[in-house]
């Protein structure tokens, strides 16, 4: 059944982003249904982070429009409640403990105090951070920082979650915990926009996949569709399909 506008969690139309003479994004359109885990792939410098900044309203496109949960991203006051964002570099304060950081974020997100504290304790426990919750973040390992940042991005129960390399630098246990959480959030109706280089993660959790290459979408669909488009057999991996699609795009560009 085709999705209607009301079903769309993210709707981007003809996004273009220029930095002087350089075109970072060119005519990118996305329609992501509610509850979808959307794997966003692309080689380094393809424009993935730029896209995420446009979709979260942190940057403005040169042309094109973005709506998240039916709200224009220009309307920051209305947008804030709908989105959670975990950028590649975790936005944390070294001077706070994880508990203080999460308490602060919950306050800024207007999560009622009792609900917030219950959620914080629950998340700290689920991500094995309880014992270190009162240590300053400045002394945390990379994995602990990433887990804390992940928790803060979901603390207000957003409808759309943007994750930029969420499992980067994590040990297998923590990476699995994040993967499981992504699936749990999607099952609960959250839309997850997942950008990563770790293709097995995408293959494991994504309902839909898009491949960005030099600022343009060169493939989109279910993982099976993308493999089919790359003329890969069912036994091939998403990694094979990704390499094939981006190679095709490179050849077309050069040809």
């Amino acid at each position: 059944m085709p999705s209607t506008d009301a079903d769309l969690a993210v709707e981007a139309t003809d996004l273009r982003k220029e930095y002087g003479p350089e075109v970072a994004l060119d005519g990118v359109s996305l329609s992501i249904s509610t509850g979808t885990v959307y794997g966003f792939l692309g080689p380094n410098g393809a424009g993935k982070t730029t896209t995420m900044r446009l979709l979260t309203g942190l940057a403005q496109p040169t042309s094109g429009t973005v709506r998240v949960c039916g709200v224009s991203v220009d309307d920051r006051r209305a947008l804030a409640a709908h989105v959670g964002y975990l950028p590649e570099t975790p936005p944390l304060y070294d001077e706070f403990s994880a508990r203080e950081q999460l308490d602060y974020v919950a306050d800024l997100r207007d999560v009622p105090r009792d609900v917030a504290r219950e959620r914080i304790d629950d998340y700290l426990d689920r991500f094995d951070l309880t014992e270190d919750a009162d240590r300053r973040i400045g002394s945390y390992s990379k994995g602990m920082r990433q887990k804390t940042a992940f928790v803060q991005s979901v603390l207000h129960d957003p409808e759309v979650l943007f994750l930029d390399e969420p499992t980067s630098g994590l040990d297998p246990r923590a990476a699995r915990r994040i993967r499981e959480s992504i699936v749990e959030f999607a099952d609960a109706g959250t839309t997850v926009f997942l950008s990563t280089h770790i293709l097995p993660v995408v293959e494991a959790v994504a309902d839909e996949v898009a491949v960005l290459f030099e600022g343009r979408l060169v493939a989109e669909g279910s993982p099976m569709d993308v493999k089919a488009r790359a003329e890969m057999g069912e036994s091939s991996s998403l990694e094979d399909a990704f390499l094939a699609v981006t190679s095709d795009a490179r050849s077309a560009e050069e040809g």
Binding site: L79, G84, P91, Y93, L108
Partner: peptide
């Protein structure tokens, strides 16, 4: 502001 991705997506400028 430090950690601007967090703060700017959470509250009004």
């Amino acid at each position: 502001v430090d950690a601007e991705e967090l703060v700017l997506t959470a509250v009004h400028p």
